[in-house]
C-alpha cells in the first residue's frame, strides 16, 4: 500500500513553523502543566494524613455495608404505607411552596441587584452581599433555625427552602437581567416610555423564559433537598428515613429510597417537558 502524501515532506518544516504557537508553550505553562498533578496528589495525601483516615476500618466497614444491603431485600413498607405516602406528599409540598415563595421574593429583589436596573450602585452592592450571605448558609441550617421559630413540621421546611433559595434565585435572576439585550429597553425609552414600561416591555419578554427555566430547575433540585430536611424535624420523608437507618430497618429504608427515586424521576420528567416547552430544545442553565 503506497502512502499518498497530501503535503510534500520538505514543506512540513514550514507548516510547523507557521503553527509554532500550537506546539511551544511558555516555561510557566510547562511548569504548571507538570506541577498540577503533583499538587493535586500531594494535597490529597495531606488530606488523608490530616483527617487521619483509618484504612483499617474500610474492610470491616465494607463488610457491614454488605450486610446492610443484604437486609434491604426485599423492600417492605413496614406496615405504614399511608405514613410514607403522607411524608412524600409533604416533601413535594415543601419543595413546591418553598420554590414559589423564593421566586416571589427573589424576582423584585433581583432587579435591584442587577447592574442595568439597579437604582444606585450602593443598593446593588448591599443586596448582592445579602444574597451571598443567605446563600452561604445551607438549607439544613435554616431549617434548624425555623424549627425553633415555628415549631416542628413541614412549615419550617418550607420557610427554610424559601429563604435559602431566595439567595440563589436572586443571584441567578439578576445575572439573567444583566445579560439581556439593552436595545429593546432603549427603544421603549426612546419612544417615550417610562422606566417601568421599559422594563415591562423591553426587558421582561427577554428574561422571562430564562427565569422560568431556572425556577423549574430549582424546583427539581428542591424536591431532592426536601427529602433530607426532615432529619432535623422540618417535615417530609427525611424524618422516617433517618429513623429507619438509626434503627437498622433497612428493608424500609430501601422502600423509602425507591419511593424517592420514582418521585424524583417523575418530577424531572414533567419539569424538563415544561422547560423545553418554554425555552426550546437547547437548555440555558
Amino acid at each position: 500500500m503506497s502512502t499518498r502524501r497530501i503535503m510534500p515532506p520538505d514543506d512540513s518544516a514550514a507548516v510547523l513553523d507557521r503553527h509554532r504557537n500550537l506546539f511551544s508553550h511558555s516555561p510557566l505553562q510547562r511548569v504548571l502543566a507538570f506541577a498540577a498533578p503533583f499538587c493535586i496528589g500531594g494535597l490529597a495525601i495531606f488530606a488523608v494524613w490530616w483527617l487521619s483516615i483509618p484504612f483499617s476500618q474500610i474492610g470491616p466497614g465494607l463488610a457491614s455495608l454488605g450486610k446492610f444491603i443484604a437486609l434491604m431485600f426485599p423492600p417492605s413498607t413496614g406496615g405504614h404505607l399511608d405514613l410514607l405516602l403522607k411524608a412524600m406528599g409533604e416533601t413535594l409540598a415543601i419543595a413546591f411552596l418553598g420554590t414559589l415563595i423564593a421566586t416571589v421574593v427573589a424576582f423584585p429583589v433581583s432587579f435591584l441587584a442587577a447592574k442595568n436596573t439597579a437604582p444606585h450602585p450602593t443598593i446593588r452592592f448591599a443586596i448582592r452581599r445579602c444574597l451571598d450571605t443567605i446563600r452561604g448558609i445551607d438549607a439544613l441550617i435554616w431549617a434548624l433555625v425555623f424549627v425553633g421559630v415555628v415549631g416542628l413540621g413541614p412549615f419550617a421546611g418550607i420557610l427554610a427552602i424559601a429563604v435559602s433559595d431566595t439567595g440563589a434565585l436572586g443571584k441567578l435572576f439578576s445575572e439573567a437581567i444583566e445579560s439581556a439585550e439593552e436595545r429593546a429597553r432603549e427603544s421603549v425609552l426612546a419612544s417615550g416610555g417610562t422606566g417601568l414600561l421599559a422594563v415591562r416591555f423591553g426587558l421582561l419578554p427577554q428574561v422571562l423564559p430564562i427565569i422560568a427555566g431556572q425556577i423549574l430547575y430549582y424546583f427539581e433540585s428542591n424536591v431532592r433537598s426536601a427529602t433530607i430536611i426532615g432529619i432535623v424535624g422540618a417535615g417530609g420523608i427525611g424524618l422516617q428515613l433517618s429513623e429507619q437507618i438509626r434503627t437498622y430497618d433497612f428493608d424500609q429504608v430501601a422502600f423509602a429510597v425507591i419511593m424517592i427515586l420514582v418521585t424524583v424521576a417523575f418530577i424531572d420528567g414533567i419539569s424538563s417537558r415544561l422547560r423545553f416547552a418554554i425555552i426550546g430544545r437547547r437548555t440555558v442553565t
Binding site: 466497614g61 465494607l62 457491614s64 455495608l65 446492610f68 439544613l140 431532592r224 433537598s225 427529602t227 433530607i228 432529619i231 427525611g238 428515613l241 433517618s242 437507618i245 438509626r246 437498622y248 429504608v253 429510597v257 424517592i260
Partner: peptide, 12 residues
C-alpha cells in the same frame, strides 16, 4: 440524598 449515605456510612 448524601445525608442518607452519610448516615449509613456512619453506621458502617
Amino acid at each position: 440524598p448524601d445525608l442518607v449515605f452519610a448516615l449509613m456510612f456512619v453506621s458502617a
